[in-house]
């Protein structure tokens, strides 16, 4: 082929690619898909780098998906005047994150730790792998990766189809309803409207998702299925005491540097909450955690304003309820035992 023909081939390819990109983006937007960021290690690392703000200007959150949905960051920031740095990771035990912050001598700020018992009290490697990978990525992030992630985030802010977890080839193949082999685990794909993530790592479910009872039921069934599949006996006895010791060591380190730590238990409902209560009785786990570590805790059941939320899919609050929950959380923390969690400027 002559170079002229190659040039024509290149022009045709560019035209087809541009036509595809525009059509693909419009297709997903026409289905009501919002812009959502990949909640990956690069986005987490971007937030992790923000923890060194002065303690009167920010609060760091660690935990699993619940606090990502249940904390409404705009509400928190509006009420407190402080930045909320969301470092929680989906499906993850936050204790490695707690230890990472405790081992960072530069971190002297305020920390809120979400306790979702089946994850928080899970010592299996699966529950910690994302946290450890995120920490590793942050520590070893190259200048090239930092620059790439800036460009990537700028693109993700404008194109719906760039959310890898939902619209990549892999995700679309996962969506195919193929009968899977017997005895082989395949992580079930979540409904697309269940999780939308902002640049600040705030996660929320869409109105379309909440309006679609089939999708909500599907997500609920996924939680129940995963719960059965990864059901491990709760840790007890010496193992639990050693675990408390490990956590106390981390919280003490932060407190000794002038930092503050609070544990929060966010709402859940239905069989999921009943199962959690049965497996992890409050007096054995939550109460002991607070007393062993001498740390303040905010349990959703203790505030009448947050005690009776109904989670659409049993595990996470709707965006509207997240605003109410956040308002109550700020109120509780500002009137906390032993003084306000916040600096005097905030009342």
């Amino acid at each position: 082929m002559e170079s002229k023909s190659f040039f024509k081939a290149g022009v045709l390819a560019l035209f087809l690619v541009a036509a595809f990109v525009i059509s693909w983006e419009l297709f997903w937007r026409s289905k009501g898909a919002p812009v959502s960021f990949n909640d990956d290690e690069a986005l987490w690392a971007k937030s992790r780098a923000e923890i060194y703000l002065p303690s009167d200007k920010s609060t760091v959150f660690i935990g699993s998906s619940r606090i990502k949905f249940d904390l409404d960051i705009p509400t928190w920031e509006k009420l407190t005047g402080e930045k909320a740095i969301q470092l929680s990771m989906v499906g993850t035990n936050p204790v490695p994150l707690l230890e990472d912050l405790a081992d960072d001598p530069e971190f002297k700020g305020k920390l809120i730790v979400d306790v979702t018992e089946p994850l928080f009290f899970s010592l299996g490697p699966q529950a910690s792998s994302s946290a450890l990978e995120g920490i590793e990525y942050f520590k070893n992030q190259t200048p090239s990766q930092k620059f790439s992630s800036k460009i990537n985030h700028a693109l993700e802010a404008n194109f719906v189809f760039l959310e890898e977890g939902k619209y990549s080839v892999t995700a679309l193949l996962e969506d195919l309803e193929l009968e899977n082999r017997k005895d082989v685990f395949r992580f079930p794909p979540f409904p697309k409207g269940f999780e939308v993530t902002n640049y600040n790592r705030q996660t929320f479910m869409t109105q379309d998702f909440m309006n679609d009872s089939i999708q909500v039921q599907r997500q609920t069934a996924i939680w129940m299925g995963l719960g059965k599949l990864f059901k491990t006996p709760p840790i007890k006895g010496d193992t639990l005491q050693q675990y408390f010791t490990r956590i106390k060591k981390a919280t003490d380190k932060i407190k000794e540097r002038g930092g503050k730590v609070v544990f929060v238990r966010t709402p859940a409902s239905g069989p999921m909450e009943a199962g959690t209560k049965a497996g992890f009785p409050r007096n054995v786990y939550w109460d002991q955690l607070l007393s062993f570590t001498s740390t303040q805790g905010v349990h959703y059941e203790d505030d009448p304003g947050t005690a009776s939320f109904i989670c659409p899919e049993m595990s996470h609050l709707s965006p509207a309820d997240a605003i109410v929950y956040t308002q109550h959380l700020v109120k509780t923390l500002s009137a906390g035992q032993g003084g306000s969690f916040f600096t005097p400027k905030f009342k």
């Binding site: 081939a9 290149g10 022009v11 045709l12 390819a13 087809l16 595809f20 990549s168 080839v169």
Partner: peptide
């Protein structure tokens, strides 16, 4: 040339989608 163009476009689209 148009076959090369289509194949080229396919590769780029698959890249973008990946």
């Amino acid at each position: 040339w148009w076959v090369v163009g289509v194949v080229w476009a396919f590769m780029l689209i698959a890249l973008i989608l990946s």
